[in-house]
Design a protein around this nucleic acid. Structure first.
Lengths: 386, 386
DNA sequence: GAAACTTAGTTTATTGAATAGACAAACTAA
DNA sequence: TTAGTTTGTCTATTCAATAAACTAAGTTTC
């Protein structure tokens, strides 16, 4: 009633998960190797592997190299046992992908958001999802779920409480999508999705504690602590864009003053750049690329402010890595120096021994891949508890 | 080898823990009630309870009220099955307690630290521990462990890497104490210990996500996320005293600028108060108590700066509660208004719906009780895995 | 006050998961 | 060929949880 009680089914779930994990990590490997790596008895492994084969999640792919005895039968995860949809719903675009169970992209669609009003945007979103579903090959489990990253605060029921740049309030996107498609739907904010994406498929692969800093129009952060997303008490932690770094600085629409994102986001950059005659990030990037001094100084300034906030993050979380993602990560060449210098100057020495400063490997796909990962891991946790 | 594999012993450990948890929570209750609350079968509960009785951790205390059938045999946890030592090693004091397994204080000793040089302090600490051990009644498990909270950064091996106000560096306190006493020793920093103490025995009882802000000479924080201490990658997270709240503010010894503790700690208060002719916190408290206007304004100012940092904490962690502890919590009557006002003004509205702002209930005993709790929970996790 | 119900806790037989160890299958090396 | 090795399965055993029957000890009802 209260706590999940322990019985034999629990053991089996645990051990099945261990076996599956071994296969996912170790690519082609034999039952004997799984037994050795996991510490499980050979007989146990055989039995669990058989169940996984019966469940179409694993298959035999012929014999491997002998090392002086009987040849091993190699196993691999069946990446095509099902497919997941990952969506990055941006302020002015929709980016979606159909991925297999290993996160390989099978189909991808990007379109600009024609009308950000909730009703119209929802229809466009559904269109994108339908098109992706139509491209899915036949598979044992079909579409295992839909994950969506959104630029706003999401509660534990998948309702978008507030998306400032879309001007949305209280949009129950999870319910809407699951009613429409009859599939499992997970909604989370763009930064959490990005964090998951980088942790699973990108720069932070298998790092236990990392902070993903999504620097776009605003700044969002996704926290992965002890290998899992930390969401706070009501599901909306990580609003670090509104960390105050100047107690008596600029007033922010959030009610606070001196919020980080007023100094270090794309918006902050563009505001300063407007007096130089630049209108968007792309123009600034190419100007920097061609070496314009004033633009380089602009980027260095943003880098410094990013560093101030990141030093705070490092001091608070002592993470293994901080990953800078979203649009601003494209400016890496012109940010990195001043950013690193500031962090080294400002973070406590003990932390610096270990923390890595990384840039997103998936580029603009971090959030989309993370959204897909939410769907995939949702599927795995369902089959584990069934 | 890698992952802990699941077997029947694991089930038994899990279920024993569930049963014990029920008994710890539900005070006197019967086997039948445990079965109902936990969902475990009556027979299973009977068997596990018998093991716990054999292990002296639980005892029968006679029959209870019948509700229309056979009278139940009531069970309770044997709080005196063992004792733990909890120590708060301060900058200028040593506070220690002998507590039973339920955290009731059996004996307590406080002394001022005569000489903060590591060798001398260690001897005084050992003296305190010896005296407390001598007061322990005979019990099945004896002294189950020693927990120590220290004002500094501690690594995963219980070595004090750096304690600025004690001027200690690289003191392997855990090894020193466990060699001396032959007991299990846990060391953690004072803020982590305080967080644990308040979460287990104080204002934050059974709250899942809380941030304990220890406002003393400096500011430290202890993070309890998902009901367990979050320690970061190397064991020293939570250095929020060095969160920069004024990007271009005062220079701090840590290398950063505008650190929170330069504006909101006891040290900050005393610095401002010196021009008014006050030398320590106690004088200021009594002046405030007698209504001196300038002193009240001083406290209000500190309250505001505390609020600025706490608003940041709330935005970052979305905790269920923030608990203000250590010496400055005594100033609650004169801080609370300006503090609450600032937090309400600066934290994002969504968070405020849920977050509670609390003051430490254990007062100066938070860290000591948390240290004892570290020893007790260490004991429980040992008997679970044995 | 006896019969009928209720509740507490134990006993018994069963289920199912993991395991050790025996074993068969399939290979290498000499 | 023969000896040794490695892989994977089979068999008997152990152990924890469980359902169901059962004993024990009450209360309620008429």
């Amino acid at each position: 009633m209260t706590t999940p009680t322990g019985d034999q089914a629990l053991i089996k779930r645990i051990n099945t998960a261990i076996v599956l994990e071994c296969i996912l990590r170790g690519a082609p490997l034999s039952r004997a190797q799984i037994s050795e790596q996991s510490g499980l008895n050979k007989a146990t492994v055989s039995s669990l592997v058989q169940d996984l084969i019966d469940g179409s999640l694993v298959r035999e792919i012929g014999t491997g190299q002998s090392s002086g005895g009987r040849k091993p039968v190699m196993l691999e995860f069946v990446a095509t046992s099902g497919y997941a949809i990952g969506i990055d719903l941006g302020v002015n675009y929709i980016r979606g992908a159909l991925v297999d169970m290993r996160g390989e992209i099978v189909a991808e669609r990007t379109s600009s958001l024609r009308d950000s009003e909730p009703g119209a945007a929802f229809e466009q979103l559904c269109g994108c999802i339908e098109a992706l579903i139509a491209e899915a090959p036949a598979s044992p489990y079909g579409i295992v779920g839909i994950g969506v990253g959104v630029p706003g605060i999401v509660d534990e029921n998948g309702t978008i409480l507030f998306a400032p740049n879309l001007q949305w309030r209280d949009v129950p996107l999870q319910r809407m999508l699951s009613e429409r498609f009859g599939l499992h739907v997970t909604i989370d904010n763009e930064a959490n999705a990005g964090a998951l994406g980088e942790q699973k498929y990108g720069a932070g692969r298998s790092i236990a504690n990392l902070v993903y800093v999504s620097v776009g129009i605003g700044i969002g952060t996704g926290l992965i602590l002890h290998k899992s997303l930390y969401k706070g008490s009501a599901g909306y932690s990580g609003e670090m864009g509104h960390l105050s770094i100047e107690a008596h600085g600029l007033s922010c629409t959030c009610g606070n003053r001196g919020c980080w994102e007023l100094y270090a986001s794309e918006q902050a950059l563009l505001k300063q750049a407007s007096s130089l005659g630049f209108g968007d990030l792309e123009e600034l990037l190419s100007a920097a690329d061609s070496g314009r001094q004033d633009v380089l100084e602009l980027f260095a300034g943003i880098g410094e402010y990013l560093g101030i906030g990141i030093a705070n993050i490092v001091n608070v979380f002592n993470p293994d890595a901080v990953i800078i993602g979203n649009r601003m990560s494209q400016a890496r060449p012109w940010l990195e120096n001043s950013l690193r210098q500031t962090v080294v100057q400002r973070a406590l020495g003990f932390h610096l021994r270990k923390v890595q400063l990384l840039f997103a490997e998936l580029g603009e796909r971090s959030a989309m891949m993370g959204a897909a990962e939410m769907a995939i891991s949702g599927f795995f946790s369902r089959i584990k508890s069934a």
